[in-house]
């Protein structure tokens, strides 16, 4: 369960203050599929970093699974991220000189999972993200943008996180591959009851979620149930 109350984020740069998030309050229940939508620069990524326990709000409270994040130590936050959360960063953030498999299994390295199990789980995640097997031993900087995105998705799935945070996960993908990814999220949400928070600026992508929170200039302008959810069915992309 994610509970934000009056969250603010202010960046100070010398005398200049930038209020990136203003008075953000909402709750996400376990098993929800929520899209956060807004134009570029509206504070979506900043919000995701706070929800993902990567950054602390300047003021306001954030309670994750009943624990006040502002009261946790850096290492406790690291364990929360390792065991409960999966991130897909807007900029992918892959290790450039490591293979695809190594990149995907890195969260498991820190969870001290033995090597064989790590490779098996990384393979499962890569399959779920739709990256062809002949790319698995490539270095991550030898991949196309779309392939990198799928590696980033696989890495977010590999530790079976209860909450998946995806920042523009389809931004670099063609429609078909994008749909595969959205289908993967829907399946994880429906079959495994994982919480999904999907960040996008495209209404079309947001419509795959059950609930859409719209952000503008750091404020929530709309928070509604998505009445006409788009459902991607299995056979529409069987070719990938």
């Amino acid at each position: 369960m994610i509970e934000l109350a009056n969250v603010e984020k202010i960046y100070k740069n010398g005398d200049a203050e930038t209020r990136v998030l203003k008075n953000i309050s909402f709750k996400v229940n376990d098993g929800d599929f929520v899209a956060i939508m807004g134009p570029s620069g509206s504070g979506k990524s900043t919000l995701m970093h706070i929800i993902g326990a990567l950054d602390r709000p300047t003021s306001g409270s954030y309670v994750l699974d009943g624990r006040d994040v502002s009261k946790l130590s850096d290492d406790e936050l690291a364990l929360v991220r390792r065991d409960r959360l999966g991130f897909i960063f807007q900029a992918f953030n892959l290790l450039p000189r490591a293979t695809v498999l190594r990149n995907v299994s890195l969260p498991l390295v820190y969870a001290e999972v033995p090597a064989e199990e790590r490779d098996r789980r990384a393979g499962d995640a890569l399959r779920a993200a739709g990256l062809p097997e002949d790319r698995w031993n490539h270095l991550s900087n030898q991949l196309s943008g779309g392939q990198m995105q799928r590696v980033a998705i696989a890495r977010a799935l590999v530790n079976n996180p209860a909450i998946i945070l995806a920042d523009e996960p389809t931004g670099n993908l063609d429609t078909k591959t994008g749909e595969l990814v959205l289908h993967t999220f829907q399946r994880l949400n429906q079959e495994q009851k994982r919480t999904i928070i999907l960040i996008t600026h495209e209404p079309y992508v947001a419509e795959h979620a059950d609930r859409i929170i719209s952000v503008r200039d750091g404020e929530i302008v709309e928070d509604k149930h998505n009445g006409n959810k788009r459902v991607v069915n299995d056979h529409s992309h069987a070719a990938i």
Partner: peptide, 16 residues
């Protein structure tokens, strides 16, 4: 620095 940031983001503790 970016690599360290990433490692911490996906769960590396300070000691790691």
């Amino acid at each position: 620095t970016r690599e360290i940031g990433l490692r911490k983001a996906i769960g590396a503790e300070r000691k790691d």
